[in-house]
Write a protein that binds this DNA or RNA. Structure first.
Lengths: 158, 158
DNA sequence: TCTGAAAATGGACCTTT
DNA sequence: AAAGGTCCATTTTCAGA
């Protein structure tokens, strides 16, 4: 599953996670590699799935979704097909940025981005109250997005 | 805080959140706009902070960080400077992808990406056990990353 | 919106290990 | 073979008319 990555690859990953718009010649200067080599490595990592995709990170506040909410969900039954339809529902809900199926006190952890409390309230009805398989859920309202990203740590030494 | 966005802007945001490497002429074709118009709109949204940054999404599994963990933390005291140093500590930890300061049963929700349980265990020592202001914390180990992203929902109608 | 210059990407080809 | 470098064609970005 994991892919062999040398120091150059890891440095490049750190750079493009920080800023994917850095031109390849600039990246080359930073990691000590020609533009062409940078190009090849980035392409290879994209082909290998090491780089999953490139994306624009949008500010939720600026587009009118200032409210971030973390919701934990406990299900009634962990029957496979019930879980699967539940996962699908969560995946399809645009306000759900992230959904983790977890072991522990809860079954799902959701990260939501919503316009306001009313919208969240509506969503709880659709997603939880209307779903027989939701035993209970807990809402944690974010007061501050202290750190937000999907950056994966990479070792830069050696 | 929020910025006025028309349908074109919102469609563009949806596109670049999906794939930031789509060329601007292609984007133009999709939303019915000239390349130059797309260029200007994207630049303006970046200048306005609507688009915060561009980033490469790296697969944690492929780089040897297959374990995602959600941790909730309750603090002893909510004294401002204690909270601030705590936030700073979380921000600086590379394995913490996300940190939300929340209202409710817990004070912080963390999303971590780690190599293995041992590394997580080490981190709990550093971050929680060594910190007097951590009253308790709970660990939820992710069995499946059902949906992962930072996509912000945008209305495409009208 | 169109046109064209500047910048960036990515392939061809040769060299090194 | 695998990976680097240089050079060149193509594509993409981006500003001026």
């Amino acid at each position: 599953m994991a892919v062999a990555l040398d120091v150059f690859d890891r440095k490049l990953l750190a750079e493009v996670q920080r800023d994917a718009h850095t031109p390849q010649n600039e990246l080359g200067a930073r990691v000590n590699l020609s533009t062409a080599a940078v190009n090849r490595r980035l392409r290879r990592m994209a082909d290998d799935g090491v780089i999953d995709r490139y994306t624009a990170v949008v500010s939720p506040e600026k587009v009118g979704c200032p409210l971030t909410i973390v919701t934990t969900v406990e299900v009634e039954s962990e029957q496979i097909d019930l879980l699967d339809t539940m996962k699908r529902t969560f995946e399809l809900c645009p306000q759900i940025q992230q959904c983790y199926y977890v072991a522990g006190e809860w079954d799902f952890v959701l990260i939501l981005t919503v316009r306001n409390m009313e919208q969240y309230n509506d969503l709880t009805r659709q997603l939880f109250f209307a779903n027989n398989n939701v035993k209970r859920f807990k809402t944690l309202v974010s007061m501050s997005r202290v750190k937000v990203g999907l950056n994966v740590p990479v070792e830069l030494d050696e």
